[in-house]
Amino acid sequence: MPEEILNSKEIERALKRLTHEIIERNKGVRNVCLIGIQRGGVLLAKRLAALIESIEKERVEVGSLDIALYRDDIHIKDEQPVVRSTDIPFQIEGKTVVLVDDVLFTGRSIRAAMDALIDYGRPAYIQLAVLIDRGHRELPIRADYVGKNIPTAINDQVEVYIDERDSRKDRVVLIRG
């Protein structure tokens, strides 16, 4: 049975806190851009950008990054990763790039994302923001900004639903494995 572990209010609070942390850590958002990892991170990145703009009154650039071609499990997974679009309509050279993803788990997606990102240019800093950190890392990777830490078993599934039009429908559920 799927069990709701975060409702829309709690998600909103978490994102607001992340926003403040990003602004505080970078002393504003000058030179900061957000890049969401396909698919779960894309809408979250847009949300964070909107929140930053409402607080700082300054525009932040937002892009999306597809990591299918950089994964290390292409040859062992049953299903082939779907190739989606990457849309980074700005230079990342010298910027502070905040990578955004919904769930941080093994860390392998983040490794792939960093490799993919560096093929677009050389950012000054790469930081990582995730809504959920569920543990079970397989690589030496940690997030700079975490919405919520959720202890899970390795076979559990964590699913994040972000609604593009109606944030009241947002939720995070845990499905016990």
């Binding site: 071609l69 990457t86 093929d119 677009y120």
Partner: peptide
Amino acid sequence: GFKDVLKRDIKKVP
């Protein structure tokens, strides 16, 4: 998706 790759400076993926 591959057309996006061809627009980049580094046009190679692993």
